[in-house]
Design a protein around this nucleic acid. Structure first.
Lengths: 244, 244
DNA sequence: TGAATTTGGTGCAAATATGCGGAATTGATT
DNA sequence: AATCAATTCCGCATATTTGCACCAAATTCA
């Protein structure tokens, strides 16, 4: 298998228990004491499956679930302490793939993880980028409608020029990796060979300005290209203070 | 190269034209008169790249594309006779890597095939070392994400320059053997560089400094080259006392 | 031990990459 | 023709990386 799993639970014992069981099955696991920490890590580099405890310091598991679902269809398994929570999960369709009520059998959880991942693999093939039937894709508070070729930021219309639209769409569809300048030139401008031009930088520049107030940010991979990432608290605090 | 390419087009002339051009560049090609035949062959034994005509007897290229995408991310290049189809491809983003409108230049198609395959290789990486689906490879407490081109040390971001990144990636991928200076120059600086032999030492030197606090160490093979090894207790005790 | 060779460390300067503002160009519309 | 928006080009400031010179340290071999 060799999949990456993020686990959020404030109980060290449970985290370690899960880790040891999952790692025995050759999953790679990273544990987080809070859902917020997990979400931050996920925003930076997504994983293949998420295990979320409901009751945690900071935001609870339901909140984190919703946050992740804004941008991703990664399988999520919830852990609850109370049966009432389980009812809640079932009642509201929050988009979790399964839930377990504590205390649970680690063996069962592992087999659930396996089956969920297998199903996921069958469906998506391999990509983790979320795209709905309507042709909608989104990242952070930005949504792009492929059919109407329009974008929204936080629900509001978000005007983009054709090049900006193409660039943003490409970045969002490939959120999980860095994209080189040559690839951008190839995909968006259609240049065959490596022409020495900086048009890509120009569009990145303008797009950056436009999304400066959004939850997304275009990070520079020095000597290579760019990558779309979530904007963190530090981002806004440090260099980039834009007010217009 | 030695990559396998499947081509589906009901026009024998085009198939053979493509085959001859691609085989001249030492690709292996298999042609199919219909998309269904190609899909059947692909299901049985996948190839490295697919070229699909849109208009074909039986199911059309779009349908085959979707079929293949259900299970695979293999690069796919579409051939269309009409501009309207091209628009359609662009609009719907069905997951093809590129499209050509007939008539097209075989030379351009070949160069496109090359660049697509190169990119694919870049992303997937090509190591004999265990690698996860996410493109993560690791050694000691260092992890390299080939997709995002970023590294972490003990979970923390670990900034590397392009050369350092390339070197470290190469060392990790070839952890099981010593690597000569000439090999490093070949693989990282390229064959045709007219630089001093010592430039490799320069990057090794800088990388050593950066990983001095990690569980890894670059050992010198005197008169030959280098090799990445685990740092042992003696290592820290003897020469390397790092304090900062 | 001592000379020759190879490797490691410091510092600097050249080369390269990036970001940004503004000018020039293109293209569509009036 | 004039205007406007979008895109590209240009040049500069800045930041980063990289190659190289020079010398010290280590290794080999006689």
């Amino acid at each position: 298998m060799d999949k990456l799993i993020y686990i959020a639970d404030d109980d060290d014992n449970i985290r370690n228990l899960l880790k040891s069981f999952l790692e025995r099955e050759s999953f790679r696991c990273i544990g987080f004491p809070t859902g917020d920490a997990l979400f931050e890590a996920y925003s930076d580099s997504p994983c293949d499956l998420v295990i979320l405890d409901v009751m945690m310091p900071g935001h609870d598991g339901f909140y984190i679930l919703k946050q992740i679902r804004k941008t991703s269809n990664v399988p999520i398994i919830m852990l609850t302490a109370k049966d009432s929570d389980a009812d809640y999960i079932q009642g509201l369709d929050l988009g979790s793939d399964d839930y377990f009520t504590k205390p649970f059998s680690p063996v069962k959880l592992v087999s659930k993880v396996k089956s969920v991942l297998k199903r996921q693999e069958e469906i998506t093939g391999k990509t983790s980028v979320k795209e709905t039937d309507d042709g909608l894709i989104s990242f952070a508070d930005i949504t792009i409608n492929r059919k109407t070729k329009e974008a929204t930021l936080g629900g509001e219309p978000f005007p983009l020029t054709p090049n900006e639209y193409a660039l943003l769409t490409y970045l969002i569809s490939n959120r999980d990796r860095a994209i080189s300048r040559t690839e951008l030139l190839d995909k968006i401008w259609g240049y065959e060979t490596q022409v020495e031009t900086r048009v890509a930088d120009d569009t990145v520049k303008r797009l950056r300005k436009k999304i400066s107030h959004s939850g997304a940010r275009i990070s520079t991979i020095w000597g290579y290209g760019f990558r779309l990432v979530m904007r963190t608290a530090e981002d806004s605090g440090e260099g980039d203070d834009s007010e217009d």
